[in-house]
């Protein structure tokens, strides 16, 4: 992932965390799907749980950022 690049405007984020989140988002939520049912049977509940965690933390972080901006 050495050529991963990004433009971030606003508060400081940890770029390594962002790179990992972006990578997880791509490999878990996107891409060609041939056999969805096999994905679930292999990955079991862990895969779904991890996917939800990424989404929930993203939304919470977004709310937190806006809260900070309003109190500034």
């Amino acid at each position: 992932m050495s050529d991963f690049d990004q433009i971030i405007v606003g508060e400081e984020w940890d770029s390594s965390d962002l790179s990992l989140l972006e990578t997880l988002d791509h490999v878990l939520n996107r891409g060609l799907v041939i056999a969805g049912e096999i994905t679930i049977s292999v990955a079991d509940i862990d895969l779904i749980f991890i996917g939800l965690n990424v989404l929930v933390s993203s939304v919470e972080t977004a709310h937190e950022v806006l809260r900070k901006r309003e109190t500034e």
Binding site: V27, L28, N29, L32, V33, I34, T39
Partner: peptide, 18 residues
């Protein structure tokens, strides 16, 4: 390339058929 989503495990005949 067409990247697969994480977690695609297939038998070879299934892949060939697809």
């Amino acid at each position: 390339i067409l990247p697969f989503r994480f977690g695609q495990i297939l038998t070879e005949p299934h892949l060939r058929n697809y």
